[in-house]
Amino acid sequence: MIKEISKNAIHSLWLPVALVASWWIFSTNSQDPYFPPLRVIWEQFVYLWVFDNVPVHVVPSLINLFSGFFFGVFIGIAGGVVIGTNQGVARFVEPAIDFIRSIPAVATVPIFIMIFGLSYEMRIAAIAFAAIFPTMLAVIQGMHSNNPTLLDTAKVFRLTPFQTLVRVRIPAAGPIIFSGIQVSLQVAFVVTIASELLGSGFGIGAFTLIATDAFLITDAWTGVILMGTLGFLVNVIFNLVERRALRWYLVSKKLS
């Protein structure tokens, strides 16, 4: 077991480690102002982000990210359930959904700026809006993919519509829904950063942009690395939650 885990760790870690190591080695004597040595970036990273600037820039970004994400996923699940369980509604609204979700999420930010101004509300609304659609489409698809035998069983045992939904239909669609939520999370992260590039003094996106404008290239590099690290960690946490929630699915698939 432990042997297997460490084997997996080696398999998934060797490439990132090799990349960082070669970056470190090849940039050691770099004179290029745009590509400072990784050692310098690292020192600046520790100086900036452990932990003086965390409350100013990281915390607001994460608050925006998670409020928008949860809000969007909530609406996405609710809307997906309504649309996915009503053939009539689905036919009516699906073309509109297909149109809206084809708009790159970042491109909607200016519209939210017009509506809400350069405010927290604007950022959270833009993030939530972007997060709605991947989840909603996954829930609709999940509802449609519910197995008829399962639904018949629920009917014969006279489960209430609410019980059928919460105990049968949503769990059965769990694997599809979770992959939708994961896409929502990724999109929410992109919009979080993008929304900070406009008219904000706080947040990792704002920090990086301001540093770039001020030719503080090393600072900008630390911002980029921080974003990557946060994005990675958020995804790791998501995968842990998913593994816990879909344990029945993952294990039963492995057994069969």
């Binding site: 035998t149 018949d152 069983t153 014969v156 049968v168």
Partner: peptide, 26 residues
């Protein structure tokens, strides 16, 4: 009812006891 396809009529996300108690809730 008892259906032929038990893999589809039992809920794989519920334990045996939860599967049995689901119709009992009413």
């Amino acid at each position: 009812v008892v259906l032929q396809d038990y893999t589809r009529s039992l809920m794989p996300w519920l334990t045996v006891e939860k599967n049995i108690s689901l119709p009992l809730k009413r």
